[in-house]
Amino acid sequence: MPPASSSKLQALDDLLLAANAGDEKAYRAFLVEVSVIVRRFATRRMPRQSAGFDVEDLVQEILLAVHNKRHTWRAGEPVAPWLFAIARYKAIDAYRRRGRRIEVDIADFSDVIEDPDAVPSAVGHDVSRALDSLGGRQRAVVSALSVEGKSIGETAKKLDMSEGAVRVAFHRGLAAIAKKFGRD
């Protein structure tokens, strides 16, 4: 089980509670957060080279299941174990349908939660591919801000740059990525 102290997971509880009360914004934020968590899990645990297996397919299957079965979560219960049980079920199911078996330990999820830097977040390998196209400082800055979620202050300190220089490197880096891969 992931540690209860994880504030990100507690935030999930609040988001789903608000969403069930009719807050669409909260529901969107909840689903986005779920997709990020689940993607980390899928990227790390699912062998990418396996034929016909797409990480994003699994992420979407889990999102759909979470949506369809959201009434089986009850206010006051932690969302995380509920979510992980669904993700685990869908992961095993996805593999079975592709004629394979996979053992998914619930502990896999706590790795993912406790160690978010160990795997690329957001759009997984797309981001690392984009980052690879940058060089030196820009890459370090974009990686720290977008992927690791560090603040500008922290990044400036770590890289021994001024905050203004970090901002400039960040925007230039993003512009370079946008130019190379096209917007959106």
Partner: peptide, 11 residues
């Protein structure tokens, strides 16, 4: 479908 679009549909 993009995951982003799916989320919008679900919302």
């Amino acid at each position: 479908m993009q995951t982003r679009e799916l989320i919008e549909d679900l919302v």
